[in-house]
Amino acid sequence: MSWLLHHSVGGAQNYEHTPRADTVFTCRAILVMKLTHIRDVIAVAERGSLRAAARHLGVAQPAITRSIREVENILGVVLFERHTRGVVTTAMGETFLRRAVVVQNELRLAQDEIEQIRGAESGHISVVLSTASHLTLLPRALERFRRRFPHIVLHVREGLIANCEPLLQDGSCDFYIGPLAGCQPSHQFLVEKLFDSRSVVLARKGHALAGSVSLADLVPGKWLSAADAIADDNELDSLFARNGLPAPVVEMFGGCGLTTLIAAVSSDLLALVPDQWLVLPNIYTMFETINVAEELPSSMTCVVRRAHLPLTPAAEYLCDTLRWASQVYVAAVTHGHKHALFSDKPPLGLVRALG
C-alpha cells in the first residue's frame, strides 16, 4: 500500500519501495482518518464545546476528546483552542472544517440518492426560499410533495441567495428559489428563471400617505427595510437617488417576512416588497398598496442549484413541484385570480388555464 501511494505521488517512472517522509504522512493520514473523526470535528465546531458535542451525538465526552486528539495527531495541527467555556476553531481547524462539511454532506446525499433509487422514500432535503417564494409556491407544492414522499424530512429556511450561497457550495442546501437580489452566482451554479417579480409599496390600512401618487409624496415617510428585497440591500436608496430624491429615512430593518409584516401593520412604516406578498389571504383588510408613477425595482425569481452534481430523486421532485407551483402562480396572475391561490377550490378559469 505504501509503495502504491508513493508510486502515485512520485509519477509512473518512480519504482522506489521506500517512500519519502511526506508520502508516509499522507499514507498514514489516509489509513487512519475515519468518518467518525469528521463527524466529531464538525459536531464540536457547531456546538462550541466537547460536552455539548458528546451530548448531541449521544456518546461519552472522553470518546469525543480522544477522537479530536487523534485527528489533530493525524494532521499534525491543532484544530481547537480550549477555553473555560468551550472551544474555538483555529485557522487550521477552519480549513479542515470546510472540507469536512463537504465530505459529510456528500456522503449523506449519496446515501439518500442510492436509497431513493432503490425505492426507499426516506432521507432529508434542505432548501432556502425567499419570503415571496414561501407565499406563492410552497403552499401548493408542499401538499403535492408530501403525497409523493410522506417520509422525507424537509428543512425549509427563509433567506436570500447571498445568505445561502455558502450552504449551496458545501451541500448543506440542495437548492434556492427566490430573487437574485443583486447577486450574480458563480459558474458553480445553474440558474433557472421561473418568472418575473416587481416591487410594490406596502402600507397599513388607513396610512396618512396612502393616497400618494409619486415617490416625491413619500419622502416624508419612514421606511422599513424589508427582508425580501428583490434588487439589493440598498434598493431603497438607489430608487430614490435615481429619481433625484433625498435618501429615504429607514427606521427599522426586518430580518424575516414575519417581522416585516408585523412591523408594517402595527406602525406607519412603509415597506417595499415583492408583489407576490399580495397573495396573502385577507391582506387587503390590513394593508393597501401605494401606486406611484415611478418604475419600481424588478427582478427574476430563479432556481439556483449546484451545476456539477445532481439533486437526489426526492429533491428533484420537490424542485419540479415548485416549478409547477410557479406555473400556477403565473397563470393565476395572468387570469386575475391571484387571491385564489390559497383557496381549496380555485376558480374554474384558473383550473382551465392550468389544463
Rank of each mutant, 00 (worst) to 15 (best):
M1F: 02
S2K: 12
H6P: 04
H6G: 07
G10K: 01
Q13S: 14
N14V: 09
Y15A: 11
H17V: 07
P19A: 03
P19Q: 10
F25R: 15
T36G: 10
D40N: 11
D40S: 14
I42W: 01
A43F: 00
R47E: 05
G48V: 05
R51K: 03
A52K: 15
A53R: 06
R55F: 12
A63C: 04
T65L: 11
S67C: 11
R69C: 03
R69W: 00
E72K: 11
N73G: 14
F80G: 06
F80K: 12
G86N: 08
V87T: 15
V88W: 02
A91S: 03
M92W: 07
T95Y: 09
V101T: 11
N105F: 00
E106Y: 01
R108V: 08
D112M: 00
E113K: 00
I114V: 14
I114A: 15
V127Q: 11
S130I: 06
T131P: 05
A132H: 09
H134I: 01
E143N: 08
R147L: 12
F149Q: 08
H151W: 05
V153G: 02
L154D: 11
E158D: 07
L160Q: 10
C164H: 01
P166L: 14
L167N: 13
D170M: 02
Y176I: 04
Y176W: 04
Q184L: 13
P185E: 12
V191P: 01
L194A: 06
S197A: 15
S197C: 12
A203K: 07
A203C: 15
A203M: 09
H207S: 02
A208F: 04
L209W: 09
V213H: 15
P220N: 09
G221L: 14
K222F: 11
D228G: 03
A229E: 07
I230E: 07
D232C: 15
A241P: 00
N243F: 13
G244S: 13
E251H: 09
F253N: 14
T259K: 02
T260Y: 02
T260D: 15
L261D: 01
I262H: 06
A263S: 13
S266W: 01
S266D: 14
S267K: 10
L269K: 09
L270N: 06
L272H: 07
V273L: 09
P274C: 05
W277N: 04
N282S: 08
Y284R: 15
Y284A: 14
T285V: 01
E288Y: 00
T289V: 13
V292N: 12
L296K: 10
L296E: 09
P297L: 07
P297V: 02
V304C: 05
A307Y: 00
A307L: 03
Y317G: 00
T321A: 14
T321R: 01
T321M: 06
S326T: 04
Q327D: 14
Q327F: 00
Y329L: 03
V333I: 13
H335C: 12
L341W: 02
L341P: 04
S343V: 01
G355P: 01
